[in-house]
Simulated scan of single mutants.
Amino acid sequence: MSGDDWVRITRHWCFTEDRTRVVPETSPLARWLHWKPGDLVKRSEAERLGAVERDQEAEAKKAAPAANKSRTPAHNKRR
């Protein structure tokens, strides 16, 4: 399970009729049980199906390039 971010499910989640997303079991759109409390699910799958919100801050960190902290270009360094 290492390498990916996992979330533990805390409530029952059901597929909708078209199986494109999950909703709480109390929703009138719920059709088929998909996850039960205690299940471990990849965060990417839970986000894709709508069970958890996307972590905007984490996505921004992944997308942002590393800051260049050098004051002068590397080719000007003396050896």
Results as ranks from 00 to 15, higher is better:
D4S: 13
D18E: 07
R78C: 06
K69E: 15
A30I: 14
W6D: 02
R31T: 03
L29V: 04
R8K: 15
T16P: 05
W6C: 08
E45V: 09
S44E: 04
R11M: 12
V52A: 01
W32R: 14
P24D: 07
R8H: 08
L49A: 00
V22I: 07
P37S: 14
W13V: 04
V23D: 00
P37C: 11
V22C: 05
W6E: 02
A64Q: 14
A30V: 13
G38W: 08
S44L: 00
L29G: 01
A58E: 13
S27D: 15
A66G: 12
C14T: 05
N68S: 09
R31I: 01
R71K: 15
I9H: 10
W35Q: 02
R71H: 12
R48D: 10
T16D: 09
P73F: 08
S70W: 10
W35S: 03
P24L: 04
K42H: 04
R78M: 09
V52T: 04
R19N: 09
G38H: 10
P28V: 05
N76L: 10
T72M: 14
G3H: 02
A58D: 11
E47N: 03
G3I: 02
R71N: 09
L49V: 03
Q56T: 11
E57H: 09
T16Q: 04
R11H: 11
S70L: 13
A67H: 12
L33W: 07
A67M: 11
E53A: 07
R78L: 11
A66K: 14
P37Y: 12
H12V: 15
P28A: 06
R21V: 01
S2G: 06
S70T: 13
